[in-house]
């Protein structure tokens, strides 16, 4: 006898909904397929019947949002692939429903189809949801049944019965098929997913990205220009210029040019954006970027460009100051002639 059927027989269990979770795609978009006992599930979810039949031995019920997403109506046929095993199935939508939970965007199927798509064995479920007025009795039962389960819910302190706490979130995952360990997160996908849904993260992220690109560009241009002046630095140092004097001199030369270049660049960027705006919308991760004139932002951009230019100039100068003046003047770095490893090791 399975754990689910034993819980169902218990007096304290008002509603028991054993469920199997599968992940699949419809038209290239992710979809959660949930195998359920429709009566128990819909009761537990306080679902509203919208169209078609809500039961039967073989069924496929589409949540309202899912139906909206894919333009599904009762009677349509959809093709779904196996969640964790190579399977393919054709489902006829037998009805639609509405819930206030995430299930509104899910496809409900019968257990036979759920097991077929997930490869889960008979009497196994990924989760069992129970509505009970007596959670303590549930915990006692699970403990006595020797079930290895994690229990959580409203009014309940999270409990790991006959099992270690999961190492992280258990979600519909390949792991759920075997129930092994915790379902590890795909950190990159999670981070990108979370980051790109936040306007602030996208805005600042793009700003930082563009800033880095601009910094590289500024540094590359200055490095090219500075390369011609390395011998001059060597000459100045040879005639007694100190490192501090060199830095001050460089700052004095860099500051006005960077200020001017920054202001011109920012203004050109703004007007170019305005000119292109009717025809070209800048859309980043689904967010449209408006182009507005803001003095503070413009000043910040100019200041940033000045800072980047000064930083780049100091970095370039530091590299040159490490060279001997003769190396700077001749434009050849004094390197050790390569020695033989054998000679070094023999001594």
């Amino acid at each position: 006898m399975s754990l689910a059927s034993n819980i169902t027989k218990s007096e304290w269990a008002k509603t028991v909904s054993p469920e199997i979770l599968g992940l699949t795609t419809l038209a290239g978009n992710p979809v959660v397929v949930r195998a359920v006992d429709p009566d128990a599930f819909l009761r537990l979810e306080n679902a509203t019947h919208l169209s078609g039949a809500m039961a039967g031995s073989e069924f496929a019920l589409a949540g309202e949002h899912l139906a909206l997403r894919f333009g599904l109506v009762t009677g349509d046929t959809v093709t779904v692939a196996g969640a964790y095993v190579p399977r393919i199935a054709f489902l006829r939508i037998t009805g639609t429903f509405r819930t206030e939970s995430a299930a509104n965007d899910e496809l409900l199927v019968d257990f036979g189809m759920g097991r077929f798509l997930t490869g889960l064995g008979p009497l196994n479920y990924h989760s069992i949801r129970v509505r009970t007025p007596n959670p303590a009795a549930l915990l006692r039962f699970l403990d006595g049944f020797q079930a290895s389960v994690h229990v959580s819910g409203p009014g309940l302190v999270r409990a790991d019965i006959h099992s270690d706490p999961p190492s992280d979130e258990r979600l519909a995952n390949a792991i759920l098929r075997t129930g092994l360990g915790g379902a590890p997160r795909d950190y990159l996908a999670t981070a990108v997913g979370e980051a790109t849904t936040s306007v602030r993260v996208v805005a600042y992220g793009i700003a930082v990205l563009l800033g880095i690109l601009v910094a590289f560009g500024v540094h590359a241009v200055q490095a090219r220009a500075f390369a011609d002046r390395i011998p001059a630095v060597g000459v100045l140092r040879a005639v007694g210029a100190s490192n501090g004097w060199m830095r001050r001199r460089l700052l004095v030369e860099t500051l006005p040019f960077s200020l001017l270049a920054g202001a011109i660049g920012a203004l050109v960027g703004f007007f170019a954006g305005k000119f292109l705006l009717p025809q070209v919308n800048v859309v980043v991760f689904g967010h449209q970027v408006p182009i507005v004139f803001d003095v503070v932002t413009l000043a910040f951009i100019v200041l940033l460009l000045v800072a980047v230019s000064i930083g780049s100039a100091l970095v370039l100068l530091r590299g040159t100051l490490r060279l001997r003046p003769t190396e700077s003047i001749r434009e050849t770095i004094a390197v050790e002639p390569p020695r033989s490893l054998e000679a070094i090791l023999r001594g």
């Binding site: 006898m1 399975s2 754990l3 196994n124 075997t178 129930g179």
Partner: peptide, 14 residues
Amino acid sequence: SDLPLKLRDNATVS
């Protein structure tokens, strides 16, 4: 190779 999992989950070995 699913015997340990079935035993752990108190499932029927079939």
